[in-house]
Design a protein around this nucleic acid. Sequence first.
DNA 1: CCCCAGGTCGTCA
DNA 2: TGACGACATGGG
Length: 287
Amino acid sequence: MQIKEYNKFIKISGESFDLASTFESGQCFRWNAIDKDTYLGVVNSKAVLITKNEDQSVDIYNVSPDEFKKYFYWYFDFDKDYNQIIDELIGKDKILQKAVLKYNGMRLLNQEPFECMISFIISQNNNIKRIKGIIERLCERYGRQIIFNQNILYSFPEPEDLKDVKLEDLLSIGLGYRAEYVIDAVKKVLDGEIILEELEEVEYEQAKKELKKIKGIGDKVADCILLYSLKKYNSFPLDVWTKRVLNNLYGFKSKYDIETFIKSLGEYAGYAQLFLFHYIRMNGGML
DNA sequence: CCCCAGGTCGTCA
DNA sequence: TGACGACATGGG
């Protein structure tokens, strides 16, 4: 992988990066397509623009070389060896092989824990389009305004920004019954009952147990938070779509079958889940 | 009016 | 533990 610094952008080459599957795989909710090869997102209170070139290189705008080294290099998962991860997944079975090859270039995004936690609490029993809408309204109301290329964007609110939020406020932007869950999460973070950053240093099982103390966080939401923001790459979120893959395509009948399968995937099981989830969703539940 | 969406909670056996 | 209905909201 080569990183070149230009005046207006940073160019990444020699690394496969598929923008559409990365940003539209349901792992994140604040990236939007400007056109087929360009996405605009808000990450860690910054507007970031990414565009893909003919030669397959990717240009990242509005990120300084320093910010890239300190933050976005990890955010985009560039510290991993994707060739090795992909090879390993392809060797597991035919279904994974198909999913991984089809969406080669999809990357796992290492997100901010608080944003990730609130987002996936909102995601439960909800559809991605509506999840994005709710999160956008949350940011408009409680985040900080960001001007970028004549666009008005909003940062994801910090815990302190949500300190005095009332149930009615959240209901009015469409959170529904999840409103009280968000309030509980904010309270536990502000009280120091949950220290998200520390969970990165803790073992998977223990970190999951801590997260589940928050009302509205069960196994699935906890696994998403662990995978997408706390570097627990072995976590494998079991949602309706993934269960569909495991039941219909793999033919697993029991909880034991599924547990055994996930364990067999090893330390990068989460990457397998990312590909399988995206694959089944993009192909209408068929293979 | 039905069912579904990146589920979880409370309750009851 | 495991099953099951309830839970807001909007779209198909």
